[in-house]
């Protein structure tokens, strides 16, 4: 009886919390569709009347949001794909190949995970300046083409695949390369999807690095473009919210479609500690 009673309370508390979580998004979307005269009013208007879709067109007219969007897509896709390839190859070497210095190399790499990214910021900026890559796609992509965390995650997963499988494949005359791409990779799919998603989210939302290595409008990614846009339009909140929606929505949609993998990935990485 007591349990049944508290079940109602549980739903109530969870719903209240859930509303607090979603309210900012509702407020963002609602504001993004308002005519100018309904934005700065008290009490706030929740349902815009009429719904003004043209705010989105207007926001895109004021700033090259389309260009920022394309830049973000290019950077996200290329750095994710690149990282995936380097990760698969390295994880294979660390989990299946015998070679001199393997354990020490792996320990060194794990050690670098402790170093906060801020330490790398300045030397990397100097390196890219010397390479002449500042304000180019290379600067936004190349430094992020490998990740120790991803290699570690995939290596653990590869290790859990039985060794007998590779012996059997060898006996059947399967080459190392084919074995990796056609057997190991499909078997490690959950880990790979997790790596891809965490990378894509991180890359899409990255701010400090793109802010530092881009100068021209044409090279900005969405988050950097958004802060510039904020400075340009000041307090025209309906346009700001339209632009924010354009940045936020793709990741939410991706998350809702592939939620299972993201949440599992986070819990797995979490339990490992």
């Amino acid at each position: 009886m007591r349990d049944a009673l508290s079940k109602g309370t549980i739903y109530l508390l969870l719903s209240l919390g859930g509303i607090l979580m979603l309210l900012p998004f509702a407020w963002m979307i609602s504001t993004s569709l308002k005519p100018a005269n309904q934005v700065m009013v008290m009490p706030p208007v929740w349902i815009p009347h009429p719904i003004q879709w043209s705010n989105y067109a207007e926001a895109m007219r004021v700033a090259p949001l389309g260009r920022y969007f394309i830049n973000s897509v290019i950077v996200t896709v290329l750095s994710t794909a690149g990282e995936l390839i380097t990760t698969i190859l390295a994880a294979y070497a660390f989990s299946r190949l015998q070679f001199y210095g393997r354990d020490i190399l792996f320990s060194i790499l794990l050690g670098t995970m402790m170093v906060p990214g801020e330490v790398l910021l300045i030397p990397n900026f100097v390196t890219l300046t010397k390479l002449g890559w500042i304000d180019r796609y290379e600067a936004l992509i190349v430094p992020w083409l490998a990740s120790v965390f991803a290699i570690f995650l995939l290596r653990q997963h590869f290790l859990s695949i039985p060794k007998e499988l590779s012996y059997a494949a060898k006996v059947d005359g399967c080459s190392d390369g084919r074995f990796l791409w056609e057997i190991m990779v499909p078997l490690a799919k959950p880990a790979i999807v997790t790596i891809v998603l965490l990378k894509a989210i991180g890359s899409w939302n990255a701010f400090l690095w793109p802010l530092i290595v881009t100068n021209s409008k044409e090279m900005r990614t969405l988050p950097v473009g958004l802060t510039a846009f904020r400075t340009d339009v000041g307090t025209i909140y309906e346009l700001l919210m339209a632009a924010s929606t354009l940045v936020i929505l793709p990741m939410i949609i991706l998350f809702l479609i592939l939620e299972r993998y993201i949440v599992e990935g986070v819990s797995r990485a979490g339990i490992k500690g």
């Binding site: 859930g18 939302n205 988050p223 904020r230």
Partner: peptide, 15 residues
């Protein structure tokens, strides 16, 4: 509860 975590810090801060 997880949604805010996947959104851009910059965009949501502007919100």
């Amino acid at each position: 509860y997880f949604i805010p975590f996947v959104t851009s810090v910059v965009a949501i801060s502007i919100v």
